[in-house]
Design a protein around this nucleic acid. Sequence first.
DNA 1: CTGAAAGCGCTTACAG
DNA 2: CTGAAAGCGCTTACAG
Lengths: 335, 335
Amino acid sequence: MRVTIADVARAAGVSKSTVSRVLNSKGEVDVRTAERVRHVIDRLGYVPSSRAVGLARGRSRTLAVLTPSLSWPWTVEVLQGAVDVVEAAGYGLLLFTRGRGRESMARFVGQVSANAFDGLLVIEPEGEVEAAAALHRAGLPVVLVGDRAHHPVFPSVTTTNALGGAAAARHLLALGRRAPLVVTGPRRFGSVRERLDGFVSALEAHGVEHDPRRVVEGDFTERSGVEAVEKLLADDLELDAVFAHNDLGAAGALRALRAAGRRVPEDVAVVGFDDVPLARCTDPPLTTVRQPLRAMGTAAANLLLSRLGEAPPPAEPAVLPTELVIRDSAPRPAP
Amino acid sequence: MRVTIADVARAAGVSKSTVSRVLNSKGEVDVRTAERVRHVIDRLGYVPSSRAVGLARGRSRTLAVLTPSLSWPWTVEVLQGAVDVVEAAGYGLLLFTRGRGRESMARFVGQVSANAFDGLLVIEPEGEVEAAAALHRAGLPVVLVGDRAHHPVFPSVTTTNALGGAAAARHLLALGRRAPLVVTGPRRFGSVRERLDGFVSALEAHGVEHDPRRVVEGDFTERSGVEAVEKLLADDLELDAVFAHNDLGAAGALRALRAAGRRVPEDVAVVGFDDVPLARCTDPPLTTVRQPLRAMGTAAANLLLSRLGEAPPPAEPAVLPTELVIRDSAPRPAP
DNA sequence: CTGAAAGCGCTTACAG
DNA sequence: CTGAAAGCGCTTACAG
């Protein structure tokens, strides 16, 4: 059957303690003994049982990540960044999805209490911020990635949302646009409010009043981008630009504009947010406020590991910079 | 500290054995005793340690999934399907990525040997088919999802690739197209060969000879779709249709065609493969051979659970049907 | 430098 | 119906 530490000890003519010592390079072991033990380990192909090690140590070298549905490309990029770091650190990564609401959460909480992992990464928390806070208070290291950077309780990773919104506004102003439609995400998101504030403030700083009727609340779907444009046109409000709070919404806006016979970017310039892979594939490709999604994932994972004492406290700031990426949907202004 | 089964036993005035029995509803327990124990469990908020349970039982109620980089939208959809099933079954899901090649695999194999999970799902295996086979022989339940359906060793889930290719061909024929460009994926994939065979056979069945120069090997990136079209045009070969082996490649073809001044679908009709979310966002939206990605993930996870004896053997076939989804890039032919 | 023993928190025969 | 004991496969003081 499975080869255990006892088998190794027997074959090497030493005690389990000694095998354990060479395994973990803990305590002094005679060089020749160590060599012999290592040899046996190789020969037998011995690998310690993670369950037994976990039980004895009280830790499992496993992290968990709790994400919204994987259908959001945003989520997936962040996740990939986290996976890279966690794997490199030799940790396992348990994946939990909030796809099915309360039911998912109940199951998740069960696993938490079962002590199945040492630390938790929550991607874009919504209702569960309180639950996460409780876990945190109970001693579980928790790191958030999303727009709760200013949450008093736990460390988190976010981006410069307001600056991103402002950059979008200034770019559109430079293109001579004065009547932008803003397709937001759900207002309950801090990031949404920040993007909107940054955008509107930058407009006003340039003396452009922003008509509140030109702000339409969406839900981050492509559909909501389509509907926002249709609504504005139906209301007979003119527009010469769109700033969508995510790329999916921007893609929807693109589609609705084309259907309405508006040319992009000539009649209407369009700017998205995120820079997910889709942004390059739309026609025209999207100008967008890039979030360093992958980097957010790696930063968050590193932050979590550092709280476990497994990595040096990260040098990277917890607030990563956004950056305007210019493509054809809102090109660089003529010099 | 953490409340253990011993705490519960003490508080309820019974032995650990009895607590374990009511926990697992195993063996006979007096109804009153059971009630009392359950009450204490609730009051103390006791949850069994997954590590200890795993060690004692020799199983961990955790499954692993080994995927290519999450950057492929294809992968993510399948993964989501698997996650849904695994979570609903009360299992944990460990995520491993092959993102960084040999290094990732080495780490992965370490975790396998450490017995960290009870079963393994491999999404679109490439080089590691042999490694997977070894694990399978060693007694680890393994299920593949991808194009190795006909692999002799283990159960797997795949789709009707050849039929999908044929459906694409017949649709283009119905639109009167006779000179299609095929942008394949890497030839080492069985699915790629099947899609190509199905496509070419259907053309020939209609008496249309397919010029091998119109088959360009791509690598599933958007870029390779762009380049395939550019190459064909540079070679001065005419084309009135494109069949790309995935949607990303089709999106690239769309872009290159537009850049070359060809209208889609009037001059060139375009058909993709997969039906990932992106397919609705291109302009025009893609006609594509849909793979039931989510269903493939759920089918694979169910298959795996059934091999663990945790679910009835799935009724669904291991070969799921593809389906042509018609959108504007290759519309329905006029009646 | 090395080993015997206890302990991590459960489950599971075995008795009764 | 219930409990004492052994066992799962490690780690970690404690002696020596």
